[in-house]
Design a protein around this nucleic acid. Structure first.
Length: 179
DNA sequence: CCCTGATTCGC
DNA sequence: GCGAATCAGG
């Protein structure tokens, strides 16, 4: 990716607004957070005085001569595929529960399901370890993602994973019971 | 481990 | 100039 004037402007703006380098990288796209940080320094923009990082000792001298390191991957984790068949326009978690869990399955009455506390993350705040369960109407600005800690490499937290991946036999039972 | 920014240096 | 590798700190 090329640092066009326009992209540099966006970088300056976002950096001044206090976004982290990784968030800016995600927003600009096509660059790593390292690239963003490097650019920030080259532009001689004011650093974060004291937050997070500290003065590093820098890289130890040459060592990657023979490396030819394989490029890790510029993560392009977009939104996860929609898990459930309905309720795209649901406004809140509670509604998802009613529609998908209560009706579809033979609801277990007193199961100790812990409803996660939504962190209301926006798209650019998602990482590979945050729950990507969409909440709200994507067309309105109250739309956000659950953002809870996701299990293992799952795109969802444990709670939403249960809603997303209902075993076939569960659904069948529910359907039979209804009919 | 997750994240943050900082630095060096091969390209 | 660019940014991956690496470091150091929360």
């Amino acid at each position: 990716m090329n640092w066009t004037d326009e992209r540099v402007e966006r970088l300056k703006k976002l950096w001044s607004e206090g976004l982290s380098a990784s968030q800016i990288a995600a927003q600009l796209g096509g660059v790593s957070r390292n690239a963003v940080i490097g650019k920030v320094h080259r532009l001689d923009l004011p650093g974060r005085a004291k937050s997070g990082g500290t003065v590093a000792t820098g890289r130890p001298a040459a060592k990657r001569a023979a490396a030819a390191a394989p490029r890790p991957q510029t993560f392009q984790a977009r939104v996860a595929p929609r898990p459930v068949t309905r309720s795209l326009g649901a406004t809140a978690l509670q509604e998802d529960i009613e529609i998908d869990a209560v009706q579809e399955t033979t609801y277990r009455p007193a199961s100790n399901v812990v409803v996660p506390i939504a962190r209301r993350l926006s798209l650019t705040d998602l990482t590979e370890r945050t729950c990507k369960w969409p909440v709200g109407d994507p067309l309105t600005d109250d739309f956000h993602f659950c953002g809870c800690e996701s299990q293992d490499s799952s795109p969802y937290c444990s709670y939403h994973a249960r809603l997303a991946y209902q075993p076939a036999h569960d659904r069948r039972k529910a359907a039979a019971a209804r009919a």
